[in-house]
Nucleic acid binder design. Structure first.
Lengths: 227, 227
DNA sequence: ACATTTGCGTTGCAGTTGCAACAAAAAATG
DNA sequence: CATTTTTTGTTGCAACTGCAACGCAAATGT
């Protein structure tokens, strides 16, 4: 049952059981459980390993100079955190907290970050997967930056929906967010988001029910044809 | 003179001349010049190589469904673009334009993305550098996301200045932006930024002249001590 | 079936901010 | 040094949006 979740992660996707075992051993995998509210990683601590959430959810948080703490990311089952820090051996500028009771697998990139050990074919294959994971994450962060850079809520919504439409190849699709997560992802207020979504629906630009969205506007189509 | 610029990039930093030559050959380096306004990469095209700007500046742009194009990034000398796309072999969702006349070195990650060739020690060493570059970029993007996620301009300014203060180890430092770039980086309007900077100066929170900023507030210190 | 929790939409309000247009200052050019 | 160009600050205005509070409906638990 663990394996199923592990394979949802790009790092392990498509590996057969034997290869998965080898990969886990190369990464010195070990599991650990946490109770709700527990700190997985305190701020300014070394990160010898990165985490893969097997169950539950963790939050990556960061504090400002003025004491406010802000959510950097929500990490759910099958998702990872801290790969870059662990790979570079940096101290963590963030701290990590269990939202629910959760189970995390810790994976050490030490072998991957040692050029000498890449001579081993297994390590090389895993390194390729790891780098691909980083690259994919960079692209995902790029998408998020594009959205967050928009100046108005409406533009943010448009940017988000455009991305999902492009990605799903259809003008109807489901978002993997509830409204609160969606507002957080857009960097805005939940109620303001609801208000703007309602406005856009009244204007006939979009339709939605729960997390199922449909792009309606003929403007949308015209503009994308033009490209 | 090229070498000096190349070594400003994490991928090549600290290499001696011989190693640099080997690295360039492994990456099938080739140079190309562009005139102002020229397209380096059109949208939806394959990216067999990523770019390292040797001279001038390029912009990474992206179009929304509604036809607005937005600046994703400004890339200056010594900086790279498209590594993730090239590594993953994805089609480019963005297009790239020369802001000035510029010279770009194209580098192909094909050897790095092939696990079999990692058996070669030179390739392995370069692969390590490449992955480190990706990881460092991910951290930088994280910083930017933290800033863009702030809900008010003042919080964005605080977040940005805090990061630079922490990074420079001092409360006085120079930003590498002019006001327009700074506003873009913060995802806000230039005039609104000027207004808020002025307000913060009047309140005695910060001081600045040009791009030289100083954090003044005793609040700042008190809050950071608290951590 | 009832009580409780959770998620989502609505609204009043005040402060913020995008926007456009202009003024002032600084830098570049000749 | 004078002139042009670029950068930065200022301001009025309208619209946006964060915020808090509330209502409603669906889901959950007992």
């Amino acid at each position: 049952m663990n394996k199923k979740i592990l394979r949802r992660c790009r790092l392990f996707a498509g590996l057969d059981d034997a290869a998965l075992e080898r990969a886990l051993s190369l990464l010195a995998a070990r599991e650990q459980s946490y109770v709700r509210g527990e700190f997985l990683v305190p701020v300014a601590s070394p990160m010898p390993a990165f985490g893969l959430v097997l169950e539950g959810q963790v939050q990556v948080l960061r504090d400002d100079r003025d004491g406010h703490h802000m959510i950097m990311a929500n990490v759910g089952a099958g998702d990872t955190f801290g790969e870059s820090l662990a790979y570079l051996g940096r101290l963590s500028p963030v701290y990590i907290v269990a939202v629910d009771a959760c189970r995390v697998m810790w994976l050490s990139p030490a072998r991957l970050a040692d050029p000498a050990s890449l001579a081993d074919a297994d390590v090389a294959a895993l390194s390729f997967r790891f780098t691909s994971m980083l690259a994919a994450r960079a692209l995902a962060m790029n998408d998020r930056i594009q959205i967050l850079s928009q100046l108005t809520i409406r533009s943010k919504i448009n940017a988000l929906l455009s991305q999902f439409a492009a990605q799903s190849g259809s003008d109807s699709f489901a978002l993997p967010f509830d409204r609160e997560d969606m507002a957080f992802y857009l960097g805005t207020d939940r109620s303001a988001l609801s208000r703007e979504l309602g406005r856009m629906r009244r204007e006939g630009l979009i339709d939605f029910k729960g997390n199922n969205f449909t792009l309606l506007s003929p403007d949308f189509r015209a503009a994308s044809d033009g490209m």
